[in-house]
Nucleic acid binder design. Structure first.
Length: 581
RNA sequence: GGGCCCGUAGCUCAAUGGUUAGAGCAGAGCGCUCAUAACGCUUUGGUUGGGGGUUCGAGUCCCUCCGGGCCUACCA
């Protein structure tokens, strides 16, 4: 038994996440966590909401509520949706927690004590009307390069030229539209990550098996231009973790907060502490996951995230850990994902284009989404959601191949032998051979799951489902029951046990299916089939069961067309942009 | 501008430099009748984006061009 710490990128607080966000971190992390628990390992699976920063402040302002209240509300919604998708977090925390405030301030103090923080005095654009400094992209104006009037202060979306907000012609505040902007002096803390360049590169070189996506993005940042740059870790905002040096004041930093990208990854640790608090456990309970001097030296730590988050997890957060000089657990494996596109374009929160987590659950149960998303996870390149593909895959895989197999076996058994596993005879060579092939297929599936090769695992799992139909077709018990009922009984017994085995091993992908079957078979949490051949006779003759209700209904063409129309996007509504840690 | 990733059958995707480039879906044919008209078997689809090179051998390595995507450090 091993101990595995799993974190999913923490979703930003302002709004409901779409399926692209879901499949990029939380869902694959859940798959992995569920699989490892199934194999008997000790797992700590952590996620949280990322609540600080300008977008949250503005969203709250737009809704006419305080930012704390706004976050409280959105936290509940996101938590509820996570449950709806059966995300099995051990704890779903909040980056605005007391734990995270204390720990973030602690890390900042340690980094400063070790000489890894510098203070930089610089000029930034201030909006008098809004009474706040503006991040570059919250300044709009006319692009000096192409004349586009809606250019953002960091980059013109029309001609893609990178800009400095001071270059814009007729600059104005994105928030209020005010043109009363001026440059003001301010001082910020910078994390001196440039000093860690060589150490980071050695570390990344030493990490085998990371996806190309992960290591290539990390190396790009290490080598680009003059190499890794120091990074500002404070902002002039009200909403965030107040800048303090450990538990002491930080002269000159009054009224400033830490930058979300500094405190968000620390929340992985804090959320584990929140978990201990919520379960009334002591400090040691969470520290054994994170402190290598307190038990975490045998923990394997795996992170899941979309490709946009890779720099923060391969560079800044490791520098925070390394620079603290304390024995915190560093990540072992970083599984990163490309993006999921929607019907020929990107998912877009601002345009309401695509399918969002709440809408998805309104139309279909979570297993449908989990299966499609995971079996099409964008592991090697961006992938695409289309309604036709979704409906075809789900109908074929879940309803025809899997659901129908369960149905035909249980109904046949019920009709011919009653609602119990029938008494058969010894296995024939065909039956033994099937068991041997099944053993090999389960072994391959397990290997893909351990390697976090999600598409391959899904493909292999589907193959196991299909093998049931193949076997049944060849055995043809509906024929043999007439002249050789014992043989038919043996075949049905094998198929009934195969259903049990499938229910167990499919649980990480489709947990609701799994629990429905286990209930119908009147079992309680059966273990992973270490010996699949023995598992094919685990339920002995006379074991009673109920024929399960229809497990997966088929989606009609009409529904497919209707959903395609409904989710094609609508102009008008304009919620704020949507991002994750 | 710079960098990275990707381009393989109608669609979604596989293939440590090594037999004849493989699966699933869709299409075609046959079979089965237990089952959600589901299932099984067989089968048609390829100049691996174009061109050049290295090699005994290239989907894979190099160069170049075309196309798509992402990142580019103050959104998160």
């Amino acid at each position: 038994m091993a101990r595995i710490l799993i974190t999913s990128a923490i979703p930003y607080i302002n709004g409901i996440k779409h399926l692209g966000n879901l499949v990029g971190s939380q869902l694959p992390a859940d798959l992995f966590a569920r699989y490892l628990r199934l194999r008997g390992h000790e797992v700590m699976f952590i996620c949280a909401t990322d609540e600080h920063g300008t977008p949250a402040e503005i969203a709250a302002q737009r809704d006419g509520v305080g930012v704390r209240e706004y976050c409280d509300r959105m936290y509940e919604i996101q938590h509820h949706l996570g449950t709806g998708f059966r995300l099995s977090f051990d704890h779903f925390g909040r980056s605005s927690s007391d734990r995270n405030r204390q720990l973030t301030q602690h890390f900042a103090g340690r980094l400063a004590d070790n000489g890894h923080i510098s203070e930089v005095r610089e000029q930034q654009l201030f909006s008098v009307a809004d009474n706040r400094f503006l991040p570059d992209r919250y300044v709009r104006g006319t692009c000096p390069n192409c004349g586009y009037e809606q250019a953002r202060g960091d980059q013109c979306e029309n001609c893609t030229k990178q800009l400095n907000p001071t270059e814009l012609i007729n600059p104005r505040s994105e928030i209020s539209g005010s043109t009363e902007l001026e440059m003001r002096w301010t001082t910020h803390l910078f994390l001196r990550q440039s000093k860690f360049r060589n150490r980071l590169e050695e570390w990344i070189d030493s990490c085998d098996g990371w996806p190309i996506l992960t290591s290539s993005i990390a190396r790009k940042w290490l080598r680009d231009g003059d190499g890794l740059q120091d990074r500002g870790i404070t902002r002039d905002l009200d909403w965030g973790i107040p800048v303090r040096r450990g538990n002491k004041d930080w002269p000159g930093m009054e009224g400033k907060v830490f930058y979300v990208w500094f405190d968000a990854p620390i929340e992985y640790i804090s959320a584990t502490a929140e978990w201990a608090d919520a379960n009334e456990l002591d400090e040691a309970a969470w520290q054994r996951w994170w402190r290598t001097d307190l038990g975490a030296d045998d923990v394997r730590y795996v992170q899941f995230m979309g490709k946009d988050n890779v720099p923060f997890h391969t560079l800044s957060f490791p520098v925070t850990i390394m620079g603290s000089g304390e024995p915190w657990k560093l990540v072992d494996h970083i599984k990163s994902f490309n993006f999921l596109n929607y019907d020929g374009g990107q998912f877009s929160t601002s345009l309401r284009r695509g399918v969002f987590m709440d809408q998805a659950l309104d139309i279909l149960p979570p297993d449908y989404w989990r299966w499609w998303l995971l079996s099409h996870a964008p592991e090697h390149s961006d992938s695409e959601f289309t309604w036709n593909n979704f409906v075809a895959s789900v109908n074929k895989d879940l309803a025809d191949v899997l659901g129908n197999f369960v149905r035909r076996v249980t109904k046949f058994c019920s009709a011919r032998f009653g609602n119990e596993v029938p008494q058969g005879g010894d296995w024939s060579s065909e039956q033994s051979q099937f068991a041997a092939e099944l053993a090999e297929n389960v072994r391959r599936y397990a290997t893909h799951m351990e390697d976090i090769e999600i598409r391959k695992a899904a493909q292999q799992l589907r193959l196991i489902w299909a093998s049931g139909n193949e076997y049944l077709q060849t055995a043809a018990p509906w024929t043999s029951v007439k002249e050789d009922p014992a043989r038919a009984a043996t075949d049905i017994s094998i198929c009934m046990n195969l259903i049990r085995l499938i229910a167990v091993i499919s649980e990480p992908f489709i947990p609701d299916f799994s629990s429905a079957i286990i209930k119908s078979l009147r079992l309680r949490s059966p273990a992973w089939p270490d010996d699949p051949e023995a598992a094919l006779s685990a339920m002995t003759p006379g074991h009673e069961f109920d024929v399960p209700d229809l497990l997966f209904r088929k989606i009609s063409d009409e529904e497919c067309n209707e959903w395609q129309m409904r989710f094609s996007g609508e102009a008008g509504s304009n919620p704020p942009p949507n991002n994750d840690v």
